[in-house]
Write a protein that binds this DNA or RNA. Structure first.
Lengths: 138, 138
DNA sequence: TATTTCACTTGCTTTTTGCAAGTAATATAT
DNA sequence: ATATATTACTTGCAAAAAGCAAGTGAAATA
């Protein structure tokens, strides 16, 4: 596992201690924009995260209180990962990454998603957060 | 050096390919909030970046067009790093990291900075961007 | 009862990071 | 003019993290 090494008391630095690697925010992206919630779903993403890295990150995110892990309703051999409030509040960060990447890098964003964000960023963030919380009640 | 390996065409993923590590955004933080612009200044930060990692990241950021490197006015043995427009437009991401870290992690932010951001986020971001661009004219 | 699904773990190689020391081009002090 | 100090790196090596392929174990399905 991965224990948190806090390099300083700066909020940017400590946020990066938690979220600042190439995979953590992609897992959260999959939960927020693709509604994914299981280990197998996360493994299937286009970026092909290694299975041991995924296990490590999920455990770290759970430890940090960013997501919760629970036995799925349908099968008890399955787990469902859900965002906590703390986790859902990373959505503004992810949305800014979408906007920056779309503007400055060679990327392809879903036009509908992008339009929604550009039309009213605050409203779009609230909707994503509401969805994340709603799904967590299911 | 570090060439860009793009894992997918997703804007979140590609933004993380560029910015998603533990050091890159700290360098940008130092430029934005502390007005730092030289190699020696970056080395002195609280988080103690290794000198070879700093050199690697500065070269990668220059390659990505996020900052420019120029001989300093006062000494020609010194270089000045400045944010480009693309670089200054990462500020919203950094600001969201400040807010999330402040709310959810054990951190200490400058009260003045935090108040300024909380009072009017958009205005604060614009100010930081203006400063970054102003300094780049100096 | 056998096979498949699902969520991991293990072992090994490669890559990245961290650390300490070294170098080379100015700049400053004597 | 010469020696010392700055500044911005590079180099070499050990430690940590990531990537890859195969294996495991519990539960669901055939």
């Amino acid at each position: 596992m991965k224990e948190l090494k806090q390099r300083s008391t700066c909020p940017v630095s400590t946020s990066l201690d938690v979220l600042g690697d190439k995979w953590t925010l992609l897992i959260l992206r999959d939960m927020v924009f693709a509604g994914k919630s299981t280990y197998g779903q996360f493994l299937q993403s286009e970026e092909k995260i290694a299975t041991n890295v995924l296990a490590d990150r999920l455990a770290a995110l759970e430890l940090q209180g960013i997501l919760t892990k629970a036995v799925a309703e349908d099968k008890k051999s399955k787990f469902t990962y859900r965002l906590t409030k703390k986790g859902a509040e990373t959505i503004p960060i992810i949305v800014e990454l979408v906007l920056w990447g779309t503007k400055h890098l060679a990327t392809v964003a879903s036009p509908m998603l992008l339009e929604e964000i550009q039309a009213n960023k605050e409203a779009a963030i609230e909707k994503f957060q509401r969805n994340a919380r709603e799904n967590s009640q299911a």
